[in-house]
Amino acid sequence: MSIQHFRVALIPFFAAFCLPVFAHPETLVKVKDAEDQLGARVGYIELDLNSGKILESFRPEERFPMMSTFKVLLCGAVLSRVDAGQEQLGRRIHYSQNDLVEYSPVTEKHLTDGMTVRELCSAAITMSDNTAANLLLTTIGGPKELTAFLHNMGDHVTRLDRWEPELNEAIPNDERDTTMPAAMATTLRKLLTGELLTLASRQQLIDWMEADKVAGPLLRSALPAGWFIADKSGAGERGSRGIIAALGPDGKPSRIVVIYTTGSQATMDERNRQIAEIGASLIKHW
């Protein structure tokens, strides 16, 4: 067993022997301040990774656009098919120029040779490549099948209805392509620590998230040296922004954090800054 596999296998073990965790309302004060600064709703939840206990939450059962955070769930569904012998990570998928959609920095470079399922998941999570996500959605049967996968996990809230990039439209009061912070946090925890996926697939999923290259201005910008984070960000229309993450000190994750916002007129930089400040408060009061 590799060191990384050992780390993920012992996530519940280490967490069980940690000192009790206590909620700190100071972080919620910052979440509410972010709402004021952005002029928009902000949803927040913080779960203990081992027990699933909610440590703090704000608007945990209000719907927010998922945006690209759905790509972690998508690759979880792909990995479940791999575990069941219905898919192979090494299978190569070929596609054409007509398949390319807006923001496809990886797939646009491989029109000639195609990409493997493993490479597509890596591109979808680490670079948020939209064509990679659409190609992977095709392998599982489309958005409705991802929703069905989530329902089978016990998540009857999260739903995907459309493809990239239309799913980022974020129309107010439109339930399409949305989740709730509580539902997303619980589902992410199941994917990373539950028995739904094999140990190898859980490790692969967290490795992809740990290698995320496009979430630097968010929670990662607030992390002290030595902290662990595996995350996936999302951005959408109407001032929408979000991030889902597993993080913790001492090089291992111990909490799940989900943050979503929508309806702001603020710039992307300002949305990023507010999420980073929430992260800084979380870490300060850990």
Score class of each variant (00 low, 15 high):
T27E: 03
T27C: 15
T27G: 10
L28T: 08
V29P: 13
V29M: 12
K30F: 04
K30T: 06
K30Q: 06
V31T: 08
V31C: 05
V31D: 00
V31L: 07
D33C: 05
D33R: 05
D33V: 06
D36P: 13
D36K: 15
Q37R: 06
Q37S: 06
G39H: 06
A40W: 04
A40M: 04
R41G: 09
V42R: 00
G43E: 00
G43A: 07
Y44D: 01
E46S: 07
L47F: 14
L47T: 08
L47A: 11
L49C: 09
N50T: 12
S51G: 05
G52F: 10
I54M: 15
S57V: 12
S57E: 07
R59C: 07
P60Q: 04
E61N: 13
E61L: 08
F64H: 01
M66N: 02
M66E: 02
M66G: 13
M67R: 01
M67D: 13
S68C: 01
S68P: 00
T69G: 02
F70A: 13
F70I: 15
V72N: 00
V72Y: 00
L74E: 07
L74C: 14
C75A: 06
G76F: 07
A77C: 05
A77R: 04
A77P: 01
A77K: 04
L79Q: 04
S80G: 12
S80Q: 15
R81A: 08
V82H: 07
D83W: 02
D83R: 08
D83P: 02
A84D: 14
G85Y: 11
Q86N: 15
Q88T: 08
L89M: 12
L89R: 06
L89T: 09
G90V: 06
G90E: 12
G90D: 06
R91C: 14
R92I: 14
H94V: 04
H94N: 04
H94C: 05
Y95F: 08
S96T: 09
Q97E: 08
Q97Y: 09
D99F: 08
L100G: 07
V101C: 12
Y103N: 07
Y103I: 06
S104L: 01
S104M: 03
V106Q: 14
V106S: 12
V106W: 15
E108H: 13
E108M: 15
K109A: 11
L111I: 12
L111S: 08
G114A: 08
M115C: 10
V117P: 07
V117E: 03
E119M: 15
E119R: 13
C121N: 02
C121M: 04
C121T: 03
S122G: 11
A123M: 13
A124H: 01
D129H: 00
D129N: 01
D129E: 02
D129C: 01
N130H: 01
T131A: 07
A132Y: 01
N134I: 05
L136V: 10
L136N: 02
L137V: 10
L137C: 06
T138H: 15
T139N: 12
T139E: 15
I140R: 03
G141T: 10
G142N: 11
E145D: 13
E145V: 05
L146A: 06
L146R: 00
F149Q: 13
F149L: 15
F149T: 15
F149C: 13
F149I: 14
H151F: 03
M153W: 03
M153Y: 04
G154P: 07
D155T: 02
D155N: 15
T158R: 00
R159L: 08
R159M: 08
R159F: 14
L160D: 03
D161G: 06
D161N: 08
W163M: 12
E164F: 00
P165A: 06
E166Q: 09
N168S: 05
N168V: 09
N168Q: 06
E169H: 09
N173W: 12
D174N: 06
D174T: 07
D174K: 03
D174H: 07
T178G: 03
T179W: 00
T179N: 00
T179S: 03
P181F: 01
A182K: 14
A182Q: 14
A182V: 11
A183W: 13
M184Q: 05
M184D: 01
T186K: 11
T187I: 14
T187D: 15
L188T: 06
L188A: 05
R189E: 09
K190I: 10
K190F: 08
L192W: 07
L192G: 03
T193W: 10
T193R: 15
T193D: 08
E195R: 10
E195T: 13
E195W: 05
E195F: 03
L196R: 13
L197C: 07
T198P: 10
T198H: 08
L199T: 06
L199K: 04
A200E: 08
R202E: 11
Q203V: 05
L205V: 07
I206E: 05
I206A: 06
I206K: 12
E210L: 11
E210V: 10
A211M: 15
A211V: 15
K213H: 04
V214M: 14
A215I: 05
P217H: 12
R220Y: 03
S221E: 07
S221I: 14
A222R: 06
A222Y: 05
L223Y: 03
P224Y: 04
A225P: 11
W227G: 02
A230Y: 03
K232V: 00
K232E: 01
G234R: 01
A235W: 02
G236C: 10
G236T: 09
R238D: 11
S240I: 01
S240N: 07
R241Y: 02
G242D: 00
I243G: 00
I243K: 01
I244L: 12
I244T: 11
A245P: 01
A245T: 08
A246E: 05
L247V: 06
L247F: 05
L247C: 11
G248K: 02
K252W: 07
P253Q: 10
S254N: 10
R255I: 08
V257N: 02
V257E: 03
V258A: 04
V258S: 06
V258R: 00
T261C: 13
T261H: 10
T262S: 06
G263M: 07
G263N: 11
T267S: 08
T267K: 10
M268I: 15
M268F: 07
D269C: 13
D269T: 13
E270Q: 03
R271M: 14
R271D: 15
R271P: 12
N272V: 07
N272P: 02
Q274Y: 04
I275M: 13
I275R: 01
I275H: 02
A276Y: 07
E277H: 10
E277C: 11
E277A: 12
G279T: 07
G279W: 10
G279A: 08
A280C: 12
L282N: 11
L282M: 15
K284E: 09
H285V: 11
